[in-house]
Design a protein around this nucleic acid. Structure first.
Lengths: 256, 256
DNA sequence: CTCAATTTGTTCGTATGTATG
DNA sequence: ACATACATACGAACAAATTGA
């Protein structure tokens, strides 16, 4: 803040509590990622951007500093500012929407088990989904892909299920191990996703900025006796998840 | 920034480009909306928060100023700080994962058509999904629920489809109108979701803060001749969307 | 080659915001 | 509440490099 002329940005600025130059940078970055400004092209001059957003020259320069640090642009005195690269393509982690795909996708995951700090969080279970088991084991793990963490899982596993193969449950993804236990019949498996933001704990574990978007999954597996044997809360980095939903079954038609 | 001692927040702070007190405020707000601190309860003292985050007293006060302005807390000298407002319960907008549910849920929507400003954005269509139609009509609308906008839709509709009922396509949800046209056979309908953040344009349209989380849907409908007759990008407020996924079909068992 | 126009780089002064102790 | 220091933002002037007439 401080001296303000009228500007598109100013109104949103108040709410957003992030510095003007960061907001300008975000807009410019978007123009590059969307292909409005392509690699090799010259982008708007300082003066044009100043006028467009109604901000000072130095502010535009600060914004461009951010983009230059990310390797998106290169500036040449007297010539202009050019797009050098596009930001690395986001590469997605497709989230499964049915059991077989889900189990297939996590088959080879090697979660990194974390020590349980303090007392485990309370079981979050809607009784309409299933009955509570007598006792649960609490597991705590970090899912990674090539060193980079992408999800943090908190799992409550019915103790009698856990006891059938403690070692495997500690080294493999619990849901996958579950799917290999022959004598367990699954009646329901249900998952909900909501969008959230990273608190301090999650930000550190997933190595992302505080308050950056996350996908929060809540997954419940109920066996044939109606007991919830698996209740998990899994928090994904928002940037890397993608849902892929086929709205029609094959051959399905609008008119039934 | 500025003088820093070690702090849990400091590391994540650098990345986020927003002032410390705003970040602290966001964390405290989350604790209230999540129910960790309930209405009437006293929250942590200034000193506790200072220590927890490793920030100065004044910084914590600035954070609480924001919450107090939102009516979430009330401070009493000598007694402490109390949660006052029942945080407006997040109430969900269940996102459909099959055609019938989708059409049913939007049947009664009355989208607010917006004028097209400038030239419409380019069609974003993966050719593997369907062939491009000869010409498209571009529609632009805001979905609202009781005055509050919750989604912004950008729709490319094949002109020959649009021409069958221009008035209805301008007043009702395009996808619903589509489903009522008898002679249109749909071969594929496909939708993807990713998590994004609000740019300035979206923030203004959806009346949310810059950079707050969004759900970005990309929906493609292909007719029986393989032409993509409907291509939409819909951006939802992140706070109000929820996926509900049944992983098992009824009676389905782990062992096929 | 020179000159002018364009464009980025740099600096100064000032005011206010953010953060510490 | 105060003293201090750094960050953000403005406006303006000037310097340096590039380009094309």
């Amino acid at each position: 803040m401080t001296k303000r002329t009228s500007s598109e940005l100013i109104e949103t600025y108040e709410r957003s509590l992030s510095p003007l130059y960061a907001q300008v940078a975000a807009v410019l970055r978007q123009r590059i990622t969307e292909g409005q400004w392509r690699p090799g092209e010259r982008i708007s001059t300082l003066e044009e951007v100043e006028k467009e957003f109604g901000v000072a020259r130095v502010t535009v320069r600060q914004a461009m500093d951010l983009l230059e640090k990310d390797g998106l642009i290169r500036r040449y005195q007297g010539r202009g500012t050019f797009v050098t690269g596009t930001p690395p393509a986001r590469h997605w982690l497709p989230l499964a929407t049915d059991w077989d795909t889900l189990v297939g996708s996590i088959k080879d995951n090697v979660p990194k088990q974390l020590p349980v700090e303090g007392s485990p969080p309370a079981l979050r279970l809607d009784l309409a989904e299933g009955a509570e088991a007598a006792d649960y084991v609490f597991l705590n793990s970090l899912q990674t892909r090539g060193d980079k963490p992408y999800a943090y899982a908190q799992v409550h596993l019915a103790r009698e299920v856990f006891d059938r193969s403690p070692r495997r449950f500690r080294t493999q993804t619990a849901l996958f191990v579950l799917s290999t236990l022959d004598d367990i019949k699954i009646k329901h498996a249900h998952q909900t996703f909501v969008i959230g933001t990273a608190d301090i704990n999650i930000a550190k574990k997933l190595d992302i900025a505080l308050n950056s978007p996350t996908a929060e999954a809540h997954c419940v597996v109920v066996d044939d006796s109606g007991v919830a044997i698996y209740v998990a809360d899994i928090i994904y980095r928002g940037e890397c998840v993608k849902f892929d939903i086929n709205l029609l079954n094959t051959g399905h038609n609008l008119k039934p």
